[in-house]
Computed example of a mutant assay.
Amino acid sequence: MLKQRLITALILVPAVVALVLLAPTPTLALLLGLVVLIGAQEWARLSGFASPVGRSLFLVALTLLMVAAEWLRREGLSAPIFLAASLWWLLVLGLLWQRRHRQTTSQSGPSWPTALAGLLVLTPAWLAMVELHSREAGPGLLLFVLVMIWLADSGAYFAGRRFGKTKLAPGISPGKTWEGVQGAMVGLLLAGLLLSWWAPVPGNLAALLLLCLVSGLFSIVGDLFESLLKRRRGVKDSGRLLPGHGGVLDRIDSLTAALPLFLFGLNLLGAA
Rank of each mutant, 00 (worst) to 15 (best):
W126I: 04
L228H: 00
A128I: 10
G140S: 10
H245P: 09
L217I: 01
G109H: 14
R231Y: 03
R240L: 04
V221K: 10
A50C: 09
L132I: 07
P200D: 11
L65R: 03
V221I: 14
I7A: 15
P243I: 03
P24S: 12
Q103I: 08
T63V: 07
L119N: 06
V35Q: 08
G175P: 15
L263E: 00
A69N: 11
L19E: 07
V36L: 12
L32I: 14
A258R: 02
L228E: 00
A152H: 15
L19T: 01
A18F: 15
V214F: 10
L62G: 07
R100L: 09
L168W: 12
V13R: 12
D253Y: 09
S254W: 09
V17S: 00
H245K: 04
L93N: 06
V17R: 01
Q103V: 01
E42H: 02
R162A: 06
F144E: 04
W43R: 02
L194G: 15
P14W: 01
I220F: 04
W43Q: 06
V235C: 10
F225S: 03
A184P: 14
A61Q: 02
L132Y: 13
A85P: 04
L116H: 10
Q107L: 12
K167T: 13
L31V: 11
A68C: 08
G160R: 15
V181H: 03
E131A: 13
C212R: 05
V53L: 05
I252W: 10
L205Y: 12
L205F: 13
L59W: 12
S215I: 04
L151F: 15
R102F: 11
L189E: 10
A18E: 02
Q98Y: 14
G39R: 09
Y157I: 11
M129V: 08
L10A: 06
L242A: 07
A125E: 07
L190C: 15
P174Q: 14
A169Y: 05
L6A: 15
V60A: 12
G33M: 04
P14F: 02
M66I: 09
E42G: 13
V53G: 13
Q4V: 08
T63W: 08
L34K: 14
P243V: 02
A84L: 06
A44P: 09
I11R: 00
Q107K: 07
D223Y: 02
G239Y: 09
I220P: 10
L96V: 03
T123M: 13
R161A: 12
A137D: 14
A272K: 00
H245Q: 05
L188Y: 03
L261N: 08
L64C: 05
A137V: 07
A152N: 15
L268R: 00
K3D: 15
L132F: 15
W89V: 00
A271K: 01
G155N: 14
K230V: 03
M185A: 11
L208W: 04
F163T: 05
V147E: 05
L21P: 14
E75Y: 04
G76C: 06
F49N: 05
L77R: 10
G109C: 13
L91M: 06
V17C: 07
L96E: 05
H101D: 08
A115L: 07
W150E: 03
V130K: 13
L46P: 11
P24M: 06
L77A: 11
S196R: 06
G265R: 04
L34M: 13
E75F: 04
W71H: 04
A18L: 13
P170D: 13
G48L: 02
P124V: 02
R161S: 14
I11N: 01
D250A: 00
G94A: 03
